[in-house]
Design a protein around this nucleic acid. Structure first.
Lengths: 294, 294
DNA sequence: ATTGTTCATAGACGTGGTCTATAGCTCCTG
DNA sequence: CAGGAGCTATAGACCACGTCTATGAACAAT
């Protein structure tokens, strides 16, 4: 009774077509093989499954009972195989990405659009959060990949550097007097500074930089959205510390200008983060491939 | 993608136990075999199905989707195998018998009782009808076996002679004067004769016998039930032509007595009839075996 | 009769699934 | 930190078993 499940495939086709010869054709094997397989099944059960007629075969009572189960089973397997093929060529499946809202909006979005156009069958899930939150999501298996600011030092994670960003201080028309000037850090602090919320990686980086010059950076305003940072600077409420690439539009149309400093601000890097030693889902793999390609 | 379904069995156990080693134990094969099988599946799909951890394996997104189908499929197969085993040792299944009411009542019933006691899981279906009807039932596959009067001459059918019966004429107290007398056929016909309905095999046989002596047998009363034949004879409405074995009780307690004739009435044979060249269901096979045994 | 179906049987062949042996890895423990 | 005990992956050998070809037997149709 310890059957080879392969026999059920043969049984299924024999019952379905009502002919061992037809079953053989469907399975691309010869009729004696089918005959032999059916015999094996019958012997293993100690039951006769088919009536053999000169014009084919017909299920016996017992065979019909077996078929009622095996038919369902085979249909499930076929469906599963189709599903797998669909997952393979990304006709279905899902892609779950973690990252910050600003990175989604200013960096990932165009890739997502391309990706969605190429693979409309793949459902997209975006989970926003801070860098440590995104790392948690990843480790919990709630996302396939995270897009965050480097550096990330975690042996469990594999990080691909994908983009270099340059943070800078920007101001609006209200501080037009500063346009073209080169400020020292001390001088800068005479103006109200607007920073992103405390637990962001960019905020930590700039705070450390000032610290290294012995200066304590204390913001006038603290917000949780990059859009607000930009908006507040434009309205003249202070000088915002933002990623230059994310305000390129405003810099171009002159609604914001960059404050020149007498020290170099360190560039920041964005990385695509995945679990090390864990295979990527094909949807995630294709997405990363697409990001590096463009 | 033309997969060996055997691989799904391995996949199922690997996913279920979360360990290739455990799956190997469940399947009574070695761990490298399991490893190899999973690899084959993954290669065939072009997808990774498991995360390999140092403490076992876990399904990937894609693997989990596959599992949702395969699990159902495997459960169906297991259920089917259990069902087959149950059918084999007659814990389930059905037995469909065709025959006349009188044969059921007087001949088959005791065997049915034994059978039901031995295999209470087998559902019994009794289909009553005349001999030609029973033959039709059999050929249409509505019954597994028929119990009818012989002779049956049909190349499609296989008939096992199972019982010899002796028909005879019986009367009740009203005709007590005939007790011990030996009657000629002519003399018999001076009394009202009660026969079974025209289309029965027993009726045809006795009509032919009279015909062979140049006598036309015309019954006074014609009924469709053996019980009625007996009852009418007991009430004195005439002389009934019945199967002696079916009135043994009445002959013993004296409510009926057999009319002696000066010619021998031919014995009739009961046969168990099945389709030739068609395998018996195990339930039917066991029943026939039981009938011959006792 | 002849031809064309069907399934069953016999025997040969060769692939592929299973095995053993071993390595690499991580985690735990003394 | 070394050693042991898990786990899975890999390599290579072997032989069972599933497939094949060839043929037979039974039946249906022409």
């Amino acid at each position: 009774m310890n059957n080879n499940y392969e026999l059920y495939k043969v049984f299924y086709w024999a019952a379905k077509t009502g002919s061992l010869t037809q079953a053989a054709k469907a399975l691309y094997i010869t009729q004696p093989s089918v005959s032999h397989a059916i015999k094996q099944l019958e012997d293993s059960f100690g039951l006769t499954l088919f009536y053999r007629n000169p014009k084919g075969v017909a299920l016996t009572q017992e065979g019909a009972i077996l078929y009622s189960y095996i038919e369902q089973s085979q249909i499930l397997i076929s469906t599963a195989e189709e599903k797998m093929a669909a997952l393979k060529n990304l006709d279905s499946g899902e892609l779950r990405i973690g990252g910050s809202d600003s990175l989604f909006k200013h960096y990932i979005l165009p890739y997502l659009e391309d990706y969605h156009r190429l693979y409309p069958g793949v459902r997209l899930h975006l989970n926003h959060g801070t860098t440590p939150e995104v790392i948690s999501f990843l480790k919990e298996g709630r996302i396939d990949l995270g897009v965050v600011r480097m550096p990330i030092v975690d042996p469990q994670l594999e990080v691909r550097e994908s983009l270099q960003l340059q943070d800078c201080f920007v101001a609006g028309a209200h501080y037009a007097e500063l346009r073209g000037m080169v400020l020292s850090l001390d001088k800068l602090l005479e103006y109200p500074v607007i920073l992103f919320s405390r637990n962001s990686r960019a905020r930590m980086a700039i705070t450390e930089l000032f610290q290294s010059y012995g200066i304590t950076l204390k913001p006038e305003i603290e917000v949780g959205s990059v859009d607000l940072l930009i908006e507040l600077a434009r309205k003249g409420l202070g000088i915002s510390y933002v990623t230059r690439e994310f305000v390129s539009k405003e810099l171009e149309n002159g609604s914001l200008f960059e404050i020149q400093l007498d020290v170099a601000l360190p560039p920041s890097h964005v990385g695509i983060m995945t679990m090390r030693n864990m295979p990527l889902s094909s949807s995630a793999g294709k997405f990363i491939e697409l990001m590096r390609l463009i």
